[in-house]
């Protein structure tokens, strides 16, 4: 590691606040770019499952009566 201590790595001779904030924002955007579509896919499949099960139930109710 280039820095001697954790505090030196955090401070980066006065540039720490710029560098760390830029990296943290990037990590947050990267996480959002990957997690959001995964959550949308899961939510969509769950919603479709609900609709299909409801349709199956309605069909079996209709055939039962």
């Amino acid at each position: 590691m280039y820095f001697d201590s954790v505090s030196a790595a955090l401070h980066m001779a006065g540039h720490g606040v710029y560098v760390w904030s830029a990296y943290l924002i990037t990590v947050a955007v990267v996480a959002a770019v990957l997690v959001l579509p995964l959550r949308r896919e899961k939510a969509f499949i769950r919603q479709l499952q609900g609709t299909l099960k409801r349709q199956q139930r309605d069909k079996s109710d209709a055939s039962g009566t």
């Binding site: 590691m1 280039y2 820095f3 980066m12 001779a13 720490g16 560098v19 990296y23």
Partner: peptide, 13 residues
């Protein structure tokens, strides 16, 4: 972030 040397003019930024 941690393993490269800083730039001689711009420092760590």
């Amino acid at each position: 972030l941690l393993f490269t040397a800083p730039d001689f003019r711009q420092g760590n930024s």
